[in-house]
Each structure stands twice: as structure tokens, then as C-alpha cells.
Amino acid sequence: MADKNAIPKNREWNPDFVGIGVFIIICLMSKANQNQQDVSDETQQVCKDDGIIVMKNITKRFDHLLVLDNVSLAIEAGKTTVVIGPSGCGKTVLIKHMIALLRPSSGEIYFKGDRIDNLSENQLSKIRTSYGFLFQGGALFDSLNVKENILFPVKQHYKVTNHSGSDDLVKMKLAMVGMDGFQNYYPDKLSGGQKKRVALARAIALNPEVILYDEPTTGLDPIRADIINELILKLKSGLGHTSVVVTHDMKSAYKVGDRIIMLHHGKIIADGTAEHIKNHPHPKVQQFINGEVSEDDLAVLRMSGSDLRSQFLPRDFEE
């Protein structure tokens, strides 16, 4: 009698397990579908030892929005690679993957031949000291002054005992970006260009091998922008850094870039030297580097023009 009672109980549970199983299978299948690839214009096959940073078949989605679509890219050591593309094309997302601040939905990232995209944050902390990241807005800590900002990464990774030595270090790093004397300023007292230069000094505080620049010249006047360009060139020639610059400023791209990559709708559509890009046959590339409006955008503008014509004129209100 007790056995008979036990059997139906088990049966009651079974459909749930089947349901969960089916759910998992559906999830796996939809995941597999997402991974299907299509080949873009200038995507090359890369191997993990092709460069200091290698991205292999990187795809990134935010919910259902596809931002990077099967991007493969190898960054050569000692060179400056510039990533160009219209706003919102995934440039910043791409550069954040290089230091594993964002993890890819699928694909692999290698730094010096070692895979980094599957490491935990704690394992990454050592690797990230080989990187310097210049954020778009500088991202200086507002609660710390310039000196403390620059010493932040140093204090996090080393025990600072020699305080005059750390003062010298701050002085040296600030002198490199032409900001010596601002040690005791707080970030809110600095202008946009000054903030970026201090942020650059902080990014190079640990003598990184790779410096990643996220839109270094955006929001600066042409002269300040050129100062940043000169700094990028100076750091490269002086210390032999590998640099990756994300920008939509073509003047800056031509000036600092050994190699220029254009990203469009999450794919690489052009890859080569400044000359190669200037003579690239792809209409989107030509349109972007010359800063021209597309026919579609013009059509939209004309539409809104016709709206204006239908509006009232002052004479309509005259008695």
C-alpha cells in the first residue's frame, strides 16, 4: 500500500523535470543559433600569437542589440592602431573588450598569447597593470586630488614607503603630459583638456605596455586636441608603447595611426595604413573620412523642410 502511494508522487514530479530539460535544450539551441557567423569585408583569420592583443571572432550583444559582430583583430606590439567609425558603432565596446572590462558574448581575447576573457576579476588584476586606459571623460576620482589620482594605481599594487620618491614619480608623470605644478588641484578645478592630460598621466603611472585611448580628442578645441595627438606620438616614440586609439577625429587618426581600422555596424569594413583608407573603395569609408551626409539623411532633412513650408507665416496672423 505504501509503495502504491509512492509511485504517483514520483509521476507528479516528472513533467516538471521534462519541462526544465526542454527549456534548457531550447536555450542551448538559441545560443547555438546566435553563434552562426557571416563573413564581413576585411575580417581576417587571426591566431593567438599574431600580436600583443588578439581578438578572435568577438561577438557582443546587449540584450538583443548586436554591437560587435564576429570581429577578429590582432594589435601589433609597438604600433599605434586607430579604430575609427561613426558614433555608436561599437568602438568603445571594442576597446573595453581589449582589457576585459566587458566580456564578449562569444569569442576569445588573448593578451601576449594568454587568454584573458575567461579569467576572474582577481586573476585579471595583475594583467591589467600592463594596460593604461584613458577614459572618454578622463574618469578622474573627484574625491582625490591630482597627485592622489596618479598615485592611486601605484598604491594599489605596491607598498609605498618612500614618499619623496612617490612625489618625484608624480612630478615626472605630470611633466610628461605638461601638467607639473597641478599636484594639489582637485579634478573639478581643471578644464576638459587638463583633465584628459592628468588622466593620461594616471594611465601611464605603472609604465604599461599597452595604452588604450577612448576618444582622446573629443570635446577639445583643435589646439588642445593636437597637444593630445603629440602626447600620443611622444609616448610611442619615447617608451615604445603599443597604443590603441578609438576616435572619430580623422585629423587625429591620420596623425597618430600606423594602422587604421574602420568599424561599421559592428564589423570591420576597412583595415590598413592611412593611404589605404584614403583610397578605400567602400562608399561608407569615403563618406565617413570626408564627413559627408548620406543621401538618406538628406532625404530626412528635406522632409522636415517641407513640414516647415506647411507651417503658418507671420502674415497669416495679420488682420
Binding site: 582589457i99 591589467r128 597593470t129 577614459f135 576620482f141 592611486f152
Partner: peptide, 14 residues
């Protein structure tokens, strides 16, 4: 919002 938390991560600090 001002990317300071990401900056902390980028410098290898938790």
C-alpha cells in the same frame, strides 16, 4: 556614470 568604477577596474583594483 562618469566611468570612475570602470577606471578602478582598469587599474587592476577590485
Amino acid at each position: 556614470v562618469t566611468e570612475q568604477i570602470e577606471a578602478i577596474r582598469s587599474m587592476g583594483t577590485n
